[in-house]
Amino acid sequence: MIRAIKAEFLKVKGSKVPLWTALAVVAYGLVAIAGAFGMKATDLNETLSTAGGSWAIAAGRGWYSPTWENVLRQNVQGIAGAWGVLLFGFVTAYVFGRERKEGTDATMLTSPVHRRSFAVAKTVVVAVWVLALTLLAFLFQTAGFALAGLEGFAWGHVFGSLGETLQAAALIYLTLPLVAFFALTGKPRYLRPMLFLVVAWVLGNTVATTDYAHLYPWMMPVLIGGASWLPVPSDRLDLASWVVALGVFVFGLALTMWKIGRSNDAVAGRE
């Protein structure tokens, strides 16, 4: 297993994809930081309090005031929203799908290492990658917010936000083995898993309006911090939510192991 994990980390070395994903994180961070400057320059809370609907409710809670507590909420939002789901999904699709795309799958599957080890090793690589991107997003945005000279700084807000951000990332991570499974099936390699994620996310927007959002894995991260600062309940995740999320993880991992473990007929018959 250790050999497989070491090999999987080495496979990423020299690839430009980690750099691109880091740049995507930074790009989103820049937007969030610009938003913090914008909040300070304009009286956004006042403006939105007259906008009506959910915006007005959120403004009523003072969520658009230029304070540390409010802008740190963006850290969670950045990871929990579609952006995080799609980016982490792409990372997973790349780690699992590239072998077939680049024709190295046969090399991997004929190595004297149990195929399950590769599935687990790749899942470990995805975990580290997701954690690294999450921390980068958090640190970059928080550092940017510091430049904006916001009011109400407290380490408690920072650590609270970090905890929520990691929690959101963890919830997304638990759904990624399903993405891995789709990356191992059919052609083209990356389209299928990304389509799966888009469908899951779009469905989630419908589920979000019901009482079952806390049981729908792709909406759970949003429930932690609130989507788009709108007053989505932030305390709805319960034990059942985590049971469902873990169930999805176990099911997805089992499916991925089964797929990687069986003969690779999908790419046979090319001759």
């Binding site: 080495l10 496979k11 070395k13 020299g14 690839s15 430009k16 072998e99 680049e102 024709g103 190295t104 799958d105 046969a106 090399t107 090319r270 001759e271």
Partner: peptide, 14 residues
């Protein structure tokens, strides 16, 4: 195998 796949981002030694 035919069209033997190597990891293109890694050097030969790697």
């Amino acid at each position: 195998l035919e069209n033997a796949g190597s990891y293109g981002n890694l050097t030969v030694l790697e």
